[in-house]
Design a protein around this nucleic acid. Sequence first.
DNA 1: CATTTCAATTTACATGTTGTCAAATTAAAT
DNA 2: ATTTAATTTGACAACATGTAAATTGAAATG
Lengths: 212, 212
Amino acid sequence: MTKRPKEPEKRPYDLGKRLEQMDESRAAILRAAKAQLTAKGYPRLTMASLAAESGVTRQTIHNLFGTKTGVLEAVFDLIALDSGMERMREVMMQPPGDAQLVKFVGIFCGFWARNRMLLRRVHGIGAIDPEFGRVIEARNRRRWMAATRIVETLGRGDGDPQQRAAALAALTSFEFFDALAESCGSEAEAEAIVLGLVRRALALRDAGDAGH
Amino acid sequence: MTKRPKEPEKRPYDLGKRLEQMDESRAAILRAAKAQLTAKGYPRLTMASLAAESGVTRQTIHNLFGTKTGVLEAVFDLIALDSGMERMREVMMQPPGDAQLVKFVGIFCGFWARNRMLLRRVHGIGAIDPEFGRVIEARNRRRWMAATRIVETLGRGDGDPQQRAAALAALTSFEFFDALAESCGSEAEAEAIVLGLVRRALALRDAGDAGH
DNA sequence: CATTTCAATTTACATGTTGTCAAATTAAAT
DNA sequence: ATTTAATTTGACAACATGTAAATTGAAATG
């Protein structure tokens, strides 16, 4: 009930242009984080190196992201929002069939290929750090759900639907794509192989396979 | 040419039993490293925690392994030598055919399943640290070579042999197995799915597939 | 334009981890 | 009993993360 004794008469203040500058700082930091994570790996990415490259102070990074893990989560959110993922709606709208599979595989493989090294690092961090790992699991569950729906609507084919969905999810996982691209040297080739494997896994005979 | 001036008259000394004790220390440290890596992940595995659990001093670990990375490489070598991998000879001796594939898949999936969490961490470290990553690449190349030979001797089937080998290598990779086991919940089921996918990828019709 | 507000900077500090060094200790080998 | 070498002990430097304060500076307000 007591009125606050030392109210220093605040007056309204609109951040306005200062917000833009904060956003620029955020963007610069995340850009530097992506670059350094890709080029140098996780251990040699430090708050100091980030600050140096992005042109702000170590403190500012802490103010904006809290901790080093916070920066990484922001990077992860950024690439998740990045081009490609929003096209999933489009795929789920498609009539079930081979064309839908082609799109499904294409979206993911394209996304994996575009951010390959970065994703390798981020997924690696998830693998060594149980806490960060949970964040990534959540994302993977989404792809698994999409795979389940596709297998359901697709219908035909033999075998347990659950297993078919698991196979589709695993075949379109980043880890598989990365391993495959490593084996065969080309990302485009890797995508083609994934598509072939998915077709066989779902018992769609290689219909429109580059026929001429 | 000058004779060393201060030769303090060393006499021969056989380490004998002391070597055994060093080996015990080594083993204890590696056991602790495996346990902590699995349970706590990489960041919370410290030289101090290792020393505490294995009953030696931090210094001793440095004497025996050099650096933290050195401990990890030793862990990696240990699980690579671990049961399973030496049976690869056996597989390569087998006459080419479905039985050989079953063994090939069985050996790797069994190995992946036995050391799953540990391998996830170790591969994760390889993914975030370019230096450590090269060690793992070397191992993967071996599996790729084995896959190449199997595809060659198998002969039949359509498609580019290189692509078939890459597919076989990627389907039997740890990353794929791990993703698959995550999706379907059971490691045994994951192995069955891998085998099915390998058969389809190499165009061996599901011959002895649990029939009846 | 003078004042207010708040992000950013500067500076300092506490903590934890890795890695090294030298002296003291201990147990095995001679 | 003496020699040898691993292990321990204790101290240290370097670096990274994270926190806390006072100060600065630029934008917003009246």
